[in-house]
Structure formats: C-alpha cells, structure tokens
C-alpha cells in the first residue's frame, strides 16, 4: 500500500513535465523554422535578385528578368566579380486605355555580384531564355577542388 502511494506521485508528476518538454521542443521547432525562413535568403535589396550555385567546374548565376531582351543586358566580369547592367522597358500603351492593374515596373538596374572564388573571365558564358538570365562562370584553375589520391603503402 505504502509502496503504491510512493510510486503513484512519480508516475503522475512525470507526465506533466514530459508534456512541457514536448511543448518546448515543439516551440523550438517553430522558431527554428521561422528563423530559417527569414535568414535563409540574405537579400541584398538590389535588383535583380539572383541565385548563385556551383559545381566542381563552374559558378552559375541566375536572375529572373522577365521582359528584358538579351541584347539590352550588359554583363562584365573582373577578377571575382560580375556586373549585370540593363534596363527593363515596358512599351507605353495607347493614351485611351483604362488600367485595371498596374503592377509591373520598368526601370534601370545595375548590380555587382562578388563570387566566392576566382573565375576564368575569358570563358564566361551568358544566356537568356524565358526571362531567366543564366551566367556560367568557369572557376579559375586555382579555385577548383583537387582530388588527391590516397596512396596505400
């Protein structure tokens, strides 16, 4: 009987703490998600927003530039930085049109992107399709990862 009484509170007390612990973990997870969301993309605040990726040989810079003709873009490379300059034009409509929505914007832009490594400026390629600009920047030999074979003695 006594043993039962002694055992009973521990069983009863553990569960609310467990519940709290579970809630704490859940809250942590929410906060983690929240901060991850806001911190994932450090926005430079300069148009155009770009995504940079890399593989063993190249860096890839992509930007969404709908309505910008490829020949209206100016791309230059020096050392480890890439400059994208251009203008987005929206042809003016007839005087007598009535607007329902006007959300698209026209204007000039210029952005410098510093890449995480040296690049081979002579072999940079740029292409635009469906409103997405892709710049392929081959890494300089020094910046490429080298495979080192481990010799077995």
């Amino acid at each position: 009987m006594l043993e039962r009484l002694a055992g009973w509170p521990t069983w009863n007390w553990r569960s609310p703490f467990e519940e709290l612990e579970r809630m704490r973990r859940e809250m942590d997870r929410y906060f983690e998600e929240l901060t991850e969301r806001t911190l994932r993309a450090p926005i430079a605040g300069v148009f155009p927003l770009t995504n940079i990726t890399e593989d063993n040989d190249n860096f890839y810079v992509r930007a969404e530039l709908p309505g910008v003709k490829p020949d209206e873009l100016e791309i230059s490379v020096t050392g480890d930085s890439l400059t994208i300059t251009g203008e987005r034009k929206i042809s003016p409509e007839n005087e007598n049109v009535r607007y329902h929505r006007r959300e698209r914007e026209a204007g000039q832009f210029s952005r410098v992107i510093t890449l995480p490594g040296q690049i081979d400026a002579d072999k940079v390629q740029a292409s635009a399709s469906n409103g997405i600009l892709t710049v392929i920047l081959p890494k300089a030999e020094a910046a490429k990862p080298k495979q080192i074979a481990v010799k077995a003695s």
Binding site: P66, R98, H100, R104, N130
Partner: peptide, 22 residues
C-alpha cells in the same frame, strides 16, 4: 505573378511576368 491589365473599347489586355515558364 505581377500583372498589368488594361482595356480599350474592343479588348482587354493582360501582361504577366512569368519568368522561367515555358
């Protein structure tokens, strides 16, 4: 997508920015 919509007496025109869409 960001859009522009405007109309004249005869038609309605919609312009939408859809980068990356085929």
């Amino acid at each position: 997508p960001a859009v522009d919509i405007f109309e004249t007496d005869r038609e309605l025109t919609l312009l939408a920015d859809l980068p990356g869409v085929k």
